[in-house]
Amino acid sequence: MNANVLPRWRQPSATQIRVVKVVIFVLCVLPALRLGVLMWRNELGANPIEHITRATGWWALTVLALTLAVTPLRRVLSVHWLLRVRRMLGLFCFFYASLHFVTYVWLDQFFDWQGIIADVIKRPFITVGFSALLAMTPLALTSTSAMVRRLGAKRWLALHRLVYLVAILGVVHFLWLVKKDLTEPLVFFGVFALLLGVRVVYWLKDRRPGPAGPLRTSVPKMP
C-alpha cells in the first residue's frame, strides 16, 4: 500500500494522533468525573452506593467493548493508527473495573472480609466478576512497551488473548446479577458476541492462504 494515496484520517500525523489521544483520554475520564460531581452535590439518588457500583461496572464493560472494537475497525477501515489508542482504552477498562471492585470492597462491604467471603460463596456472580478483574491485572501490568519487548511479541500476544476471557466473564457477571430484566446485559452480550465472532471469522480466513487470505502481510497479527 502506498502511504501517499491514503486519506488523512487513515494516516494522521504524529501531532494529530496526540490530539486524538488527549480527546479520548478526556472522554474516558468524564464518567468518573461525573460520579465525583454527583457525589459532591449529593445527587446520586436514594442509594448512592448502588448508583456508583452500577455506573463503574457499566463503564468497565463499555470501554472493554471499545477496546475490542479496535481490531475489527482497523481491518474494515484500514485505520491502523487506532492500535495506538488501544492501550489507553484497555487501561481505562481496568481503571473502571478497579473502581467497581473498590466500590464493592470499600463502600458496599466496608472491608468486612468475613462478609465478603460469605458473599463470594453465596453470590457466584461476584466470584465471576472478581475473576474478570484478576484476568485483567496481568494485561494492565504488561501494557508498557518495555514489557512487550521483554516478553516478545508472540508471548505478549498470547497473554493478551486473556481479554476474550475477560469479556465473557464480564457479561456472565452482569447477566447473573440482575433480578429479572435482562435487557441491558443482553445488549452487552450481543456486542461482545459480535466482537469475538468477527475474530473467529478473521482467524478462519487468515488460516487459508490465497486471494481470500490476509490483507496485511507486514502488520503483525494482534488480538
Binding site: 436514594a46 442509594n47 452506593i49 463502600l107 462491604q109 466496608f110 468486612d112 462478609g115 460469605a118 458473599d119 453465596k122 453470590r123 457466584p124 456472580f125 447473573w176 446479577l177
Partner: peptide
C-alpha cells in the same frame, strides 16, 4: 434463607453507610 443468587443475612437501610 438466602436467595439462590445472594445472601439475605444483611441489608442496607437507605441513608445508612454500613449494612
Amino acid at each position: 434463607v438466602d436467595h439462590p443468587r445472594w445472601s439475605q443475612a444483611r441489608e442496607r437501610r437507605l441513608g445508612e453507610f454500613g449494612k
